[in-house]
């Protein structure tokens, strides 16, 4: 089967730093594929290489069947790109930005007006289309850029942190647009994000990236299932780790910001025994695993807490595992 995107050992080095390290993955047609990872994990660099904005240091990548190195112009014709930072001209109106985009992408200009009307309607900007982008809110600007990315009807759409800095309501809106695109128009969408919720809600499949490497690749559902149990978070000042270790149904013990995070099979059945074994518990929370737990499992740190890894206590917990 032909994949819309395929990378083999894709690598990017900046001097001594290896930003993307031998990335290999395949994306199917019509899929929403997520690259999830903390800031600096190499997500944007990966997208930039796929969009032919950065040449790879090593490895290969094909987008829409075209090699990103040898056929960069064909690649750029078949993709749309919505950047992390605003990239519309704020002295021009929303509609003018779209018009320039259509000219630059060689869109058939005969029915350009209908096309612009369509995408503007899709992102609810019809009423404000003649206003200068300078007067738009962050969310409106993002929506305009999404519309612009769709104007030349690309088969593949790259979204780099599309909801960064947007309010929850706008974010929900954007999600439904993005989902609709993939379902109704069969557009393949590659999205980078560091929001767990977004990755969980939106992505059909997902690659977790840390330090430029893929540490896990699966559907969000499977990833959670693979953890093999529920999550219990305990606040304990002096935990009895040795006792916990003896309990067979405790699959994993990790430390996160002073909280013990246990992965437990059939948690509700065993909670009493765990509480007894661990010592005096100040606070307890039990739930089904989320992507955050998956992330914690693969990277050893929660996404919002990137400095706090590798402390003495953590090393002790990990060595006890």
């Amino acid at each position: 089967m032909m994949h819309v995107i395929e990378t083999k050992n894709l690598t990017k080095r900046f001097g001594k730093l290896t930003a993307v390290n031998r990335l290999s993955f395949k994306v199917n047609e019509g899929e929403i594929f997520g690259l999830l990872g903390p800031n600096g994990a190499g997500k944007t660099t990966t997208l930039s290489m796929l969009a032919t904005l950065l040449p790879p240091s090593a490895g290969t990548a094909s987008v829409g069947g075209f090699d990103v190195r040898k056929e960069s112009s064909k690649v750029r014709h078949s993709i749309g790109f919505v950047f992390q930072d605003p990239s519309s001209d704020d002295l021009l109106s929303g509609r003018e930005n779209l018009y320039l985009h259509a000219l630059m992408y060689g869109v058939d200009m005969r029915n350009i007006n209908e096309k612009m009307d369509d995408v503007l309607k899709l992102v609810d900007l019809t009423a404000r289309q003649h206003e200068r982008v300078r007067n738009y809110s962050g969310g409106m600007r993002r929506r305009l850029e999404l519309a612009r990315g769709l104007l030349h009807e690309p088969k593949i759409l790259f979204l780099d942190e599309p909801t960064l800095g947007l309010d929850p309501q706008t974010r929900q809106h954007l999600w439904s647009y993005i989902k609709g695109l993939s379902k109704e128009k069969n557009v393949t969408i590659i999205i980078t994000t560091h929001y767990m919720e977004e990755a969980d809600m939106l992505c059909d499949r997902l690659a977790i990236i840390d330090h430029g490497r893929i540490v896990a690749l699966d559907t969000p559902g499977n990833m959670k299932k693979k953890l093999g149990g529920d999550v219990i978070r305990l606040q304990v000042s002096r935990p009895n780790l040795a006792a916990l270790k003896r309990l067979r149904y405790v699959k994993r013990v990790q430390r996160d910001n002073g909280v013990l995070v246990l992965t437990v099979t059939d948690a509700s059945k065993h909670i009493q025994e765990i509480l007894k074994a661990v010592g005096s518990v100040e606070n307890v929370e039990m739930r089904a695993p989320t992507l955050n737990d998956v992330f914690l499992h693969y990277t050893g740190s929660e996404i919002r807490d990137q400095e706090g890894e590798g402390g003495f206590f953590e090393r002790m917990v990990n060595s006890n595992r």
Partner: peptide
């Protein structure tokens, strides 16, 4: 800085 250049550079133009 406003990244309009990116929009231009990613367009299929030489």
């Amino acid at each position: 800085r406003v990244d309009f250049l990116k929009e231009v550079l990613v367009a299929p133009l030489s």
